[in-house]
Design a protein around this nucleic acid. Structure first.
Length: 485
RNA sequence: GGCGCGUUCGUCUAGGGGUCCAGGACGCCGGCCUCUCACGCCGGUAACACGGGUUCGAAUCCCGUACGCGCUACCA
């Protein structure tokens, strides 16, 4: 039975600052945001930094930055899980005092040995079947002797039913229900204790997380009950896989949001693509903005089977945004990639800047990403271009071409109106006078203006470049042909 | 080993007993457009994991098998 969700909701996204924001995590964040935005309520961001050794401030910043880049917004936090350690510990003491947890003096090695033994005998292993809790007196005595101990939570034997938004009711029988450590012998709380405590503390109503936590959920529910708290509504998302439904890793291309950012993808595209990995609006829309997704999102439509991450489809979605977003938005996202190709926007005067923007607008439909777009923009701002003799080999061999291009320069130079139409008329008349097909002039001209054999329709290119820059490049190109003939 | 989850074109998915000889999208192939390359447009390719049931009728419900993934930590 799927549970219908009603708002307002209090949801959370708790990344560990131990690395980059994985696409799976990014998608979890997106669904939580979509749920919160569509139903009202709050999304709280919590940094799970209890594993101090592997966490640091830079990593946390990295994750926040990736979240902001992709366009996920949150209402509360980021709060640090590490700030609640005393609270977590006192909850463990409380459970101990209420007899819902006990002191565990068994050495980890002894447990591991037993586990291995059972594993070899192909038997199910449960801690509580082999290591009975110490009596109160024994525990007291051993504590006084200074023996190290962990705190273990008592799991009942009653089956626990998880009512999951995406999977319906999932029952866990007693084979899986085992006493679990909530406080390590060094006094630090374990994950299961901390999530439950923090979700209670933040009054979380809905926990939407990865499927890897589904089997952990009965433990969490037991903890809620032991603390006399109502468990949240759960929803476990299928995992994002690599090719062949194997675990997704860097080997399959990018696996983190940061990498896509560096590759020059638009965040709108990643957001859109990720939202569709495991969810669909039910109609035939594929390209939906964050706002449209918020309007259409319902948790009931979340899928339950694992999806393979497909960089090719992401590339297509990206291309849709490259051509569909307002120019100003493209320009904004393009800015960080400009220094790489030697463009300093602040140093450009107004006319060059206008030329640059016209060029970006003209090339955006054929650039796969922002890196490519940036390089396409170079000829619009640079005074002189460097031509490649190999690429131009064909033009170098055409002796008549130089003279024809000079004719063209003359014609272009005398044009009063510089438009797609006027330049085309001028070029065709030069071609006609020289008794060659227009293509004979069009291709070298494209090369002269863009250093490339392929590109936009030539007259669009010429119009965007403007008269002055077009003539200048053409002049340089003829000189280049002469010098290398 | 135990337990849990999953399985529709290569990939993302629609579908939830008859309207499905299974629809859309990416990819791939072909065509149109054309000064090139893209975009766009048109067409094609290709799937209900397997086996049993239930039913007049199953992609849809039930059981089993296979495969994949997850959990089974003093990791999170």
């Amino acid at each position: 039975m799927k549970t219908k969700i009603e708002g307002p909701v209090r949801v959370r996204f708790p990344p560990s600052p131990t690395g980059f924001l994985h696409v799976g995590g990014a998608r979890t964040a997106i669904y939580n945001e979509l749920l919160r935005q569509s139903l009202g309520g709050s999304l709280v961001l919590r940094i799970e930094d209890t594993d101090r050794a592997r966490s640091d401030q830079a990593m946390t910043e990295q994750i926040l930055s990736a979240l902001r880049w992709i366009g996920v917004t949150w209402d509360e936090g980021p709060t640090l899980q590490s700030a609640g350690v005393d609270r977590h510990r006192s909850v463990a003491w409380r459970l101990l005092a209420e007899g819902k947890a006990y002191h565990d003096f068994v050495a980890p090695e002894a447990v591991a040995a037993k586990r291995d033994e059972m594993q070899k005998a192909k038997q199910n292993f449960r801690y509580k079947d082999h290591f009975p809790p110490p009596s109160a007196d024994e525990a007291k005595e051993r504590m006084e002797r200074g023996e190290p101990f962990a705190v273990r939570f008592v799991m009942g034997d009653e089956p626990i039913v998880v009512s999951d938004i995406v999977r319906g009711e999932v029952t866990f029988g007693d084979e899986m229900l085992d006493d679990l450590i909530i406080l390590r012998s060094d006094g630090t709380p374990t994950y299961h204790l901390t999530v439950v405590c923090d979700d209670i503390e933040a009054r979380i109503s809905h926990v939407i997380r990865g499927e890897d936590h589904l089997s952990n959920t009965p433990k969490h529910i037991a903890l809620y009950r032991a603390l006399d708290e109502e468990p949240p509504v759960y929803g476990h998302l299928p995992l994002i896989m690599g090719p062949g439904k194997k675990r997704l890793s860097k080997r399959h291309g990018a696996a983190s949001a940061e990498e896509f950012r560096e590759q020059g993808l638009l965040p709108q595209a990643l957001y859109n693509y990720l939202a569709f990995l495991g969810w669909s609006p039910g109609d035939e829309r594929e390209i939906m903005s964050r706002e449209e997704l918020i309007g259409a999102f319902t948790a009931e439509r979340l899928g339950s089977s694992a999806a393979v991450f497909d960089p090719e489809k992401l590339a297509w979605v990206n291309a849709q945004y490259m051509s569909g977003l307002p120019l100003a938005t493209i320009l904004e996202h393009l800015a960080p990639f400009l220094p790489e190709v030697g463009i300093d926007l602040s140093a450009l005067d107004e006319s060059v800047r206008a030329r640059f923007e016209a060029g970006v607008d003209l090339h955006r439909t054929r650039a796969k990403n922002l890196i490519e777009l940036a390089s396409f923009a170079v000829p619009y701002v640079r005074d002189r271009l460097d031509y490649d003799a190999d690429l131009c080999a064909k033009f170098l061999k055409q002796e008549a071409l130089r003279g024809q291009l000079e004719q063209l320069i003359e014609q272009f130079g005398s044009l009063e109106a510089w438009t797609v139409e006027s330049t085309e008329v001028a070029m065709r008349s030069v071609a006609e006078a020289a008794e060659v097909k227009a293509g004979v002039l069009i291709h070298p001209t494209r090369m002269a203006l863009s250093c490339s054999k392929a590109g936009p329709s030539l007259f669009d290119l010429v119009a965007a470049m403007g008269q002055e820059a077009s003539l200048r490049h053409l002049g340089h190109f003829v000189a280049f042909l002469r010098a290398n003939a």
